[in-house]
């Protein structure tokens, strides 16, 4: 394609091609500290929906090695969002090297907390806030569990913050442009701290599994083994596709670490609760 870039994030590498220069330049800036590998596991295309639409009311269609036919195009100003969506989709649909759990991951030394939840559960915000308090940021989208070792591999992509979360962005963090009026509202991407990117090839051993829920009165609950098991299968995008390896990996993860459900009313309370759980381990 006319413009392109390759990006390495943890164990995965991407090639993003675009009919326009803008999205590639935005990626180049936001992913300033990431490697530019020669080989890419996945290719993403940001293409005009027809030749003339490169210029007139330009709309970006996201395609790639893996894609969903019903995804609607995005306006050209939201090229960075389109690229991020494309990269997410490749991993969610194509990745088989690790069991993927929808979770944010932070670590102290080589021991990690997995915070798993649906979009809106606040896991990204919690991870970003913890990263300001000495925790290593391993990712806010997918916990990548190695079937061989059971350890979690960092996949520290930039965090996308929405609407009221935007004010939480620390001054010293590298950010992308403000994308107004996206399907998810106002969005800005925040690159993880340089140290987290530098350590993106160092896995950690899962030590605690938290299912956070933002916006509820503080509450802490234990989970039955079967409930944890079911929640993990539901939080995984490739559990079924991984077959027997997926089952074994998930069973081992469930059996080795404590799991709690955590409701919290605001970010600061959530951070304090997570750290208290950690101290009590």
């Amino acid at each position: 394609m006319k413009h392109q870039i390759t990006l390495g994030v943890g164990p995965v590498s991407f090639r993003i091609g675009s009919d326009w220069h803008g999205p590639i330049a935005a990626l180049d800036a936001l992913y300033h500290d990431y490697p530019r590998p020669g080989f890419a596991d996945y290719s993403v295309r940001l293409e005009a929906i027809s030749p003339w639409r490169r210029w007139i009311r330009p709309s970006i269609r996201v395609r790639g090695d893996y894609w969903l036919p019903d995804a609607s195009p995005l306006p050209r100003a939201q090229g960075l969002l389109a690229a991020e969506m494309g990269m997410n989709l490749q991993v969610a649909l194509g990745h088989r090297r690790h069991l993927l759990i929808h979770a944010a991951v932070v670590a102290r030394g080589d021991r990690a907390i997995l915070m798993s939840g649906v979009s809106g559960a606040g896991k990204s915000t919690l991870a970003l806030m913890l990263s300001q308090r000495g925790w290593r940021f391993l990712g806010d989208e997918f916990a990548m569990i190695d079937p061989e070792t059971g350890w979690v591999h960092p996949f520290p992509r930039p965090v996308s913050l929405k609407n009221e979360s935007l004010e939480l962005i620390p001054d010293e963090y590298r950010v992308g442009p403000l994308l107004a009026g996206t399907p998810k509202g106002d969005v800005r991407h925040v690159a993880p701290p340089t140290a987290a990117i530098a350590a993106m090839d160092e896995p950690a051993r899962p030590a605690l599994l938290v299912f956070p829920r933002f916006g509820f009165p503080s509450a802490l609950g234990g989970l039955a083994a079967s409930e944890t098991f079911v929640r993990l299968t539901q939080a995984s995008t490739n559990y079924v596709a991984m077959g027997e390896a997926g089952f074994r990996t998930l069973v081992r993860l469930r059996g080795r670490i404590p799991a709690v459900a955590l409701d919290y009313p605001d970010g600061a309370t959530g951070v304090a609760a997570v750290e208290a759980l950690w101290d009590a381990l």
């Binding site: 083994a225 079967s226 299968t233 027997e244």
Partner: peptide, 22 residues
């Protein structure tokens, strides 16, 4: 079969189908 007792539930992975049964 791979049988993994959890609590009152038992997870069973059935190799020929690749399906997990609870």
């Amino acid at each position: 079969l791979i049988v993994e007792p959890l609590d009152v539930f038992t997870a069973v992975f059935h190799r020929p189908s690749g399906v997990t049964h609870l």
